[in-house]
Simulated assay, not measured.
Amino acid sequence: GGGSELYRAIVRGMGAAAADAAVALLKDHSAMEIINGHIIPALGRVGEEFEKKRIFLPQLLMSAGAATAAFGQVRATMKDGCGTKGRIILATVRGDIHDIGKNIVKLLLENYGYEVIDLGRDVSCETILKSTQDHNVRLVGLSALMTTTLPAMEQTIKVLRQNLPDCRIMVGGAVLTGEYAKSIGADYFAPDAAGAVRIAEEVFGQP
């Protein structure tokens, strides 16, 4: 995927080119091959460049737009169930101002047919709890990219556990490991956006 037309179009934020490249790939690749082999790696690369301040928000948004254009073409070929597969809340925990990783996860989940309620960044555990209750959500995704905000993540999980024992919680972010996620009481650790989709499919029971 590294050198593909689609990968380059997304990295450069070229929507029309990304859509055309996706159509060309669909001739001899499955939708999943295109998503996992081209779109996700390109978004991952863009996310890394943004984190390292090599590119800035306008480029990031253009790349996300190009990825969405490509998804649009690919999605047209995927069999679409009626309605949403499930509702998921995403939030970056209190004190944490990074949300590029979360935004890529959101884009991907939406393109897989999930309804995503994005609470944004620097979100208090009270807000997360209230939204989860109000919207009757079965899966909450929390992200943290700064080690200093891990206690806030742990606190949020504790509050959700006490009030909503049936709710599943997935966590992700550069500073987390699967082991640490388990130690703070999360049900799932998503190492990347594709991992978050696999978790959603498991929680909502769709193959």
Rank of each mutant, 00 (worst) to 15 (best):
I88S: 13
D28C: 02
A190S: 15
I117H: 04
G1R: 03
H29C: 08
C82H: 06
I39K: 07
L164F: 02
P151A: 07
R138L: 10
F189E: 08
M146R: 10
I35C: 00
E110T: 13
I88E: 12
R121S: 05
C167G: 00
A9M: 11
H98R: 07
G101C: 14
A67W: 09
G37L: 06
Q73L: 08
L160A: 06
V11L: 06
V175G: 03
A196Y: 06
T149G: 04
K102Q: 14
A67V: 06
G113K: 12
G13T: 01
A76M: 12
A42K: 04
A18Y: 04
L26V: 08
Y112C: 03
G72H: 15
R75E: 10
A186G: 08
L90Q: 02
A24S: 14
V140D: 03
E126Y: 09
T77L: 14
T149E: 05
M62A: 02
R54T: 07
V159H: 00
G195W: 07
G86F: 14
H38Y: 12
E5G: 10
A24K: 15
I169H: 02
L119Q: 03
G83W: 10
N111A: 13
Y188V: 11
D187W: 09
Y188E: 12
A91C: 00
I100Q: 00
E51Q: 12
V116P: 05
D134T: 06
K182A: 15
P58S: 03
I97F: 11
G13R: 10
Q206W: 09
F56C: 01
A18S: 11
T156L: 05
I35G: 04
R8M: 08
V116I: 06
G47M: 06
I184E: 02
E51M: 01
A190L: 13
V46Y: 14
D134W: 01
A70Q: 01
G195E: 09
A196E: 05
T156E: 07
G113M: 07
K52M: 14
A64R: 00
K102E: 09
A91Y: 02
D99Q: 10
R75L: 11
L60C: 00
T127C: 07
M78A: 06
T132W: 04
I117N: 00
Y180D: 02
E48A: 12
T147N: 05
G95P: 00
I55Y: 04
G3V: 09
R75P: 00
A9I: 14
H38F: 13
A186R: 04
V171L: 13
A190W: 14
D80M: 06
Q162T: 11
V11C: 08
H135S: 07
G185H: 09
G3S: 13
A64Q: 09
F189S: 05
G205N: 11
N163C: 01
E49M: 12
D80I: 07
V137K: 01
S183W: 03
V93M: 11
I55C: 06
P191R: 11
S63C: 07
A66L: 04
H29K: 13
A9S: 15
C167P: 02
F71G: 02
L164Y: 01
A196P: 04
T132R: 01
V11H: 07
A24V: 13
V46I: 12
G205V: 04
A200P: 07
L26W: 04
L61V: 14
L25I: 03
R161L: 05
K102D: 11
K106L: 08
A42D: 08
C167Y: 00
